[in-house]
Simulated assay, not measured.
Amino acid sequence: MSTRVPIEPQRVDAPLTQSATFLVLSVTSTPSAIKIVRSALAGIDDIAKNVAIRDLNASFACTVGIGSRVWDEVTRLPRPAELHPFPEVKGKKHTAVSTPGDLLFHIRSERRDLNFEFERQLLDILGDSVKVEDETIGFRYFDIRDLLGFVDGTANPVGPAVPASILCTREDDSAGAGGSYIVIQKYVHDLKGWRGLSAEKQEAIIGRTKFDNIELDDASEKEQKAHKQLATVEDAEGNEHDILRDNMPFGSPGKGEFGTYFIGYSRRLWVVEKMLERMFIGVPEGMHDRLLDYSTPLTGTTFFAPSASLMASLDDGDD
């Protein structure tokens, strides 16, 4: 009787920490770029161990995502069924932009210095095989609030629902088994405009109370829906599909920059894409998420986080 080899996922469910670095890279066209990238990804655990050993209580973790453009060359394996570039979502008033990115490193720990050291060692190894598209430093803000003042991530799955919501199974797609789709968007906020709203108007836009995070009643079918309602996705049978958000605030008061880095992990990419359609196009069409009047996305990129087992197999010695 044949037995299935266990698939070890990456730490896509690592806990939210005090600090995170979101590093998006594009692979260059240098002759050795793909080989260097393959070797670096295969050895990512070695870099992580070298950094994490300095403080075992810091909950260090790094999740790697690979984009559609380089998946075939980097992995030399069939691509996950839903993996494709981030599609621009254009509504009547707001647009979810699509931006470049071949590799994502979601680096997080309780200590900023550990994240810094991991990124430094990683980029030393990758050298001129990559170009930095974006580097964003996130931080935990009080009791897991965003810079708009609301608790973020309340709808995340918990316990056994986490792997069921974010990890592809063999039954879903053999090429993606043990992996997870990742969508990232870097939003900047019009904090002055937002603060000009009353707390009641802010709560109506978000769909929760600001102080104690209590969920407000949903709007009716023809009424303007809150962000909470538009970001909830159901299938044709009425089953709700969760994603795991590891969002983090970022910014610089001296530069007047205030933002939220959205990062969503999902077992099914269509769930995140449907959520963005609901937000930017609206339900019904034209009634967009009013949060977008105060939050503008600067980036939009899709990745797939393959299993740790697949990552370790990349450096096979071939040219």
Rank of each mutant, 00 (worst) to 15 (best):
E240A: 09
H241F: 07
E277V: 09
F280H: 05
F250Y: 15
A236H: 11
K228L: 05
D246Q: 08
D218K: 05
R278G: 05
L269D: 01
K274R: 08
K274V: 06
L276I: 13
K228H: 11
P249K: 07
R245Y: 13
D235T: 05
P253K: 09
S220G: 14
K222T: 11
I263N: 09
A226P: 00
M279Y: 03
M248T: 05
R268C: 04
K222I: 14
S266L: 09
Y261N: 03
G254Y: 12
E223C: 14
P249W: 13
F280S: 08
L269E: 00
F258M: 06
N239V: 14
E221C: 09
A219F: 12
V233I: 14
R268D: 12
V233N: 01
G254C: 09
E277M: 04
E234P: 01
S252N: 13
Q229M: 06
E221K: 09
E273W: 01
W270L: 13
F258K: 05
S252M: 14
V272S: 07
S266Q: 02
A231P: 00
W270R: 11
P249I: 14
S220T: 09
V233G: 01
E237L: 15
L244P: 01
E273S: 10
Q229S: 07
K225R: 10
E240W: 02
S266C: 11
L244W: 00
S266V: 09
K222M: 14
V272R: 02
T260C: 08
I263F: 10
E257A: 14
T260Q: 03
R268W: 04
L230K: 00
Q229E: 10
F262C: 11
L230Y: 02
S266M: 05
R268F: 07
S252V: 01
K225Q: 02
R267C: 07
E223H: 12
E257H: 06
F262P: 00
F280W: 05
H241V: 06
E234W: 08
P249Y: 13
A226T: 06
G256K: 12
F250S: 11
P249F: 13
E257C: 12
K225I: 04
G259L: 02
T260A: 05
L230R: 00
E257D: 07
R278Y: 11
D242R: 12
A226I: 04
E221S: 07
G264M: 10
F250L: 09
F262I: 14
G256I: 11
F258R: 08
K222F: 14
F262K: 06
I243S: 00
G251F: 03
E234N: 11
E240K: 15
I243C: 02
K255L: 15
D242F: 15
H241P: 00
V233Q: 04
L230D: 00
F262Q: 04
K228Q: 07
F258A: 14
L244A: 02
